[in-house]
Write a protein that binds this DNA or RNA. Structure first.
Lengths: 136, 136
DNA sequence: TTATTTTCCTATAGATTTAATAGGATAATC
DNA sequence: GATTATCCTATTAAATCTATAGGAAAATAA
């Protein structure tokens, strides 16, 4: 299941990407427009800023804005920041690899075998889609 | 993340599929061979039996065995029983569809748009792999 | 029959993760 | 100096996942 964090994060990014100008947009506006708890959204936008997707401005007329052009924001990077590893098991993860401690040899592991294919299929989708592709 | 339930279930199914004969295999043997808590595995095998993947026999010489041939067991059905919906959001699920209550119109929803592609990519993998393909 | 073995079944405890809230600090503008 | 809006940490609440407990039921063997 996709976490609400990711869901809300994607919606917020898309909302910002759909703006004509790059003027800061307030959290309250995004939250209201997308039906999201403002405080929860606040923490999400914070991590998006900390990870280089958004810029921010404080005080009156402040808010968040996209730093890059939507077509330069790959879904792989967004998903990794919001949802975590794209792989369903650590032993097939490119960016978060970990050996399974219970698995004697992963080359003969059926789960590894299947999840490798799943990972590749998902990567293919995320690599071929940018934020620009999500705008209605 | 793949749940341990699914991981263990897949390993158990693969172990049974790798057997030459279709003689019942005891929970204890599977648990030991795959490093799984026996009691936890017990409940997993029970749901696999209830969902038509396994047969069972009680008493001495009893255990679990595959009902169908491994190449007739599609990963789509296994994943749905063990892990639940293949889709990451209910609004793109084929078998567990639900409308998002917070989404005014899902045709213009960016999450829906992306997750539809993800779902299709995953279905493609699960449909093209059977239990037979997981055997080392 | 009686003992043994193994699955069957429900309930529940423990652990982890996710979702949401609280409350004030910081910085920019008016 | 007042107001506005982001910044930041901690904590609570809810949900889900993992594992265990403990006995019932059924099959086999003595």
């Amino acid at each position: 299941m996709l976490s609400k964090k990711t869901k809300y994060g994607l919606k917020a990014l898309t909302y910002l990407a759909s703006m004509d100008s790059k003027e800061p947009v307030q959290i309250a506006e995004i939250a209201k427009h997308e039906n999201i708890s403002q405080k929860f959204l606040e923490s999400i936008l914070l991590t998006l800023r900390r990870n280089g997707f958004l810029g921010s401005k404080k005080g009156k007329g402040g808010g968040y804005y996209l730093i890059k052009s939507p077509d330069e924001i790959q879904m792989t990077t967004v998903m990794r920041v919001l949802e975590g590893p794209i792989a369903m098991v650590p032993c097939v993860s490119l960016n978060f690899y970990e050996k399974c401690e219970d698995c004697p040899n992963q080359d003969q592991c059926s789960v590894n075998k299947l999840m490798l294919k799943v990972r590749d299929a998902n990567l293919e989708v995320y690599r071929n889609n940018t934020l620009a592709d999500l705008i209605p």
